[in-house]
Every structure is written in C-alpha cells, then in structure tokens.
Design a protein around this nucleic acid. Structure first.
Lengths: 142, 142
DNA sequence: TAAAATTACTTAGTCGCCTAACTAAATTTC
DNA sequence: GAAATTTAGTTAGGCGACTAAGTAATTTTA
C-alpha cells in the first residue's frame, strides 16, 4: 500500500519549493549586489568573523572549489577580505568589510521577508510542527 | 515574541535540506549518465511524450534559456529528440528515445531511494502531515 | 631527518540556472 | 493586408555548484 505516486513524493515537493524559494529570493536579492549563495556566506561571517575557508566550506555544505571562486568575486566587490593565516600558511581567513556588513543587513531583511512569505498561511502550531518535521528530515539526510 | 533567530527559520531549514538532498541525489545519479536537473525533464516527458519546450519550461519552473542548453546536451547524449512542430514552426517538440526511457527507469529507482531516505524516521502520520504542510508552503510561494 | 601522507586551497572544465538581447514565426490590430 | 505585438526559442555571458587534478604547506611516520 505504501506505493505512492512520484508527484506526491515529499522529495518532489521539496524540490519544487526549493526552486520557488530561490526564485523569490533572487528577485529580492536582485535589488542588491548580492548573489544567490553569497547571502549564506555573509550570514556565517556575521556569526563569526575571520573564519577559515575550510570552516565556511563545512558550514555551508559546499566544496572548496565553489567557495574559492565565490570569495574572489566577493572580494572584488569589496564585501569581504581574504588574508593568509600567519601561523598556518596554507589556510586563509575571511573578514567582512563595512560594505559586507551593510550587505548583510540587507540579507537579514530579505530573509525575514522570505520567512514571512513561506509561513504566511500557517498557524503557530503548524509552523512549530513543520519546523520539527523538517528537522527530522534534515537528520535523515545528514 | 514572534522574533525567531535566523538559524531557526523554516526557510533556512529548507535551504539546508535542499543542499543535502541534491548532494545525495547527485551521488546516486553519478552512476548514470544523467545530470542534476535532467531527471525532472525525463519525469515530465514520461508523463507526456512530445511536449513543447514551453510546456516543459512551465512545468519545470525554469527559463527557456536553461532548458534550451539542457535539451541540446541531452539530445547529444541520445536521451531525447527535438523536432520542429509542423503546424507552428516557432515551437519544438521533445520526444524520449529508447535510451531516454531506460534512463528514466533509473531515475524512478533513484527517486524512490531518495524518498525512502527522507522519510526514514517518520511515521505514516508524520509523513502525511509533512506533505500537507509542505503543500501549504508551496501554495504560499506560488 | 627525510619520505610519505594529509590538509588547504586553486585551477580547469562541466552543468544547472539566470538575465538580457536577439531572431523568427504567428497573431492582433488598425 | 501591412504594421505592431506577442510568442517561441537561441545565444552570450555571469554565478553557484560539482569533479578531477594540481600546488604548496604541514604533519606523520619510518
């Protein structure tokens, strides 16, 4: 009986939601100079400035190669600054500039807007429940 | 009181889940010749063969430019076949080849595996509930 | 202490996805 | 019926993400 049709897969719902969420987010971000995955980097830097690239890689769940190019672009834009670590010359540390901090303030607003949009028709109970269920899913995928 | 921290945003949970889901999916797909968004195209073609490009664009929630390149690559791979419509010469129709049908069978297996992974620790009730809540979110974003 | 293995990135090349600008064909409208 | 508009796709160029292969520095190990 557990035979579900693919269009009802939770996985597919997540994919569709992911696409719509990203599209909406990109619309909001397009009014700033921030690009699609850079918001997350700014977020983690806002939690702890001067992190190593590896630390960001781990938190952001992306590859070194991805963040390497991203950091270059964001440094060119003047949002962050990359500096070689003095004690371990293999590693680089990433710092937010003032421009980056301003950019992050925009990100925080946009994230708030996104969250409101996503939870628009949910009661507080439903919201809490959804959060709990998604945390289970996250654990299943980790 | 509704002031939630960003790390608790449902939006952020969705982003994290989306990344992990895609990573897992890519691991499974990497054993085939199918790439990350091509599975969805094959799915929609499996529901209705010979669709126009515009029809696929709408269902897949992506841009013409994106699918245009994707179709070229998949046609080169021999999974699909693109043909100009006879009555309306602006439009093209996309058909699955035998190789594409075989590829889709792999996709269906992989999707089943993904769904099992995602719902691993959920009871049937939780699964149903999550599906309902996600459908609300989907509507909020549409 | 010199060689081997690991760690931290970078570079090159591919794909998905986007926007902007373009071509070509069909439809509207005047 | 000709001009204006809309529709359908393509091309060019940019970013996020990945893999594979490379470099350089640090740590292990023999």
């Amino acid at each position: 009986m557990k035979a579900k049709k693919q269009e009802n897969y939770i996985s597919n719902l997540l994919v569709q939601i992911g696409k719509l969420r990203r599209n909406k987010s990109n619309v909001l971000l397009s009014e700033t100079n921030i690009h699609g995955g850079q918001d997350i980097l700014l977020y983690y830097l806002s939690l702890e400035d001067g992190q190593t690239v590896s630390s960001l890689v781990e938190k952001m769940c992306i590859q070194h190669a991805t963040i390497s190019a991203m950091i270059d672009r964001m440094e060119t834009q003047g949002m962050i600054k990359k500096e070689k670590d003095v004690t371990d010359k293999r590693t680089s540390r990433v710092y937010m500039t003032n421009k980056g901090m301003d950019a992050y303030k925009e990100v925080a607003k946009i994230w708030k807007t996104m969250e409101a949009m996503i939870t628009k028709d949910l009661t507080e109970d439903q919201e809490r429940l959804l959060r709990e269920l998604l945390q289970l899913v996250l654990k299943n995928l980790s």
